[in-house]
Design a protein around this nucleic acid. Structure first.
Lengths: 132, 132
DNA sequence: TGATTGATTGACGTTAACGTAAGGCATCCC
DNA sequence: GGGATGCCTTACGTTAACGTCAATCAATCA
């Protein structure tokens, strides 16, 4: 049993996106589904890429940034020069993501403190919050 | 020495943004600089808010989402009902940020592995990378 | 005092990331 | 065989987040 392939509708349901979105990503060369006649068939590779795309979006990356990073996950038959660039780009993005995580942790800490303040203020006003 | 206040130009240099951006944020009610005649003067509060705004943007939040969260950091004289809503919103955002951080950590791990793969492939091709 | 510098308010332009509507194949079901 | 369904392409519309003029005003500097 080779890996199953999915229609655009099935993909949309799986990942909670619209057909327009998938076609748009294909136009932007983030996806490259197979074709049977006119119809698209999304392979395992497409699913993996889409997952990475949606993940990247949640981190605030643009589609163009994501597109470049995606090559890193398919290092197959790139030329050495290009591969080296892809690798370097990956290192930069890794650094960016790590610093973003650190910044995020700080922001989380700050927000926690603010929430404690909020709880205090509300308690003083006699408001009872749902127990956590 | 009360807290210093800055012109729009000074703010732009400090935070590496354009005047248009600051005026835009004011129009969207994310900032509320004082006025001396026509000119804006950005206070300590504005600087703190701007910092939060830029941070939020890096996390992928929209300006509207950020605007709502900002109220949490200025809990002063809100009505109790509204304060409670602000607080609840803060809790939701906290949860979102925490899960984003977790997701980010996973993505970082994956990316690290891919980079190791890349190093291996490049090494096999005889490419020497700059020592880290 | 006249020119430069830095600020202001419109108002229209731009880019990213899709949404939405129109019109047209192909297949399946009764 | 004629809807219904699901897909396709083409193309214009939309929203967020600013960019980019243009015209104006106020202070400052030579």
């Amino acid at each position: 049993m080779s890996d199953p392939k999915f229609t655009i509708g099935e993909m949309c349901e799986m990942f909670d996106v619209t057909p327009r979105t998938l076609r748009f990503y294909e136009a932007k060369e983030l996806l490259a589904p197979e074709r049977v006649g006119q119809k698209r068939l999304f392979t395992k590779s497409d699913r993996a890429r889409l997952k990475l795309i949606l993940q990247g979006k949640r981190f605030g990356f643009s589609l163009e940034e994501i597109r470049q990073l995606l090559n890193l996950y398919y290092l197959g038959d790139q030329q050495t020069t290009q591969l080296t660039q892809t690798y370097q780009l990956g290192r930069e993005r890794l650094a960016a993501m790590e610093s973003q995580r650190d910044e995020l942790n700080n922001a989380i800490e700050d927000l926690r403190e603010q929430l404690l303040w909020g709880e205090k203020v509300l308690a003083d006003r006699g408001v009872k919050l749902a127990a956590e």
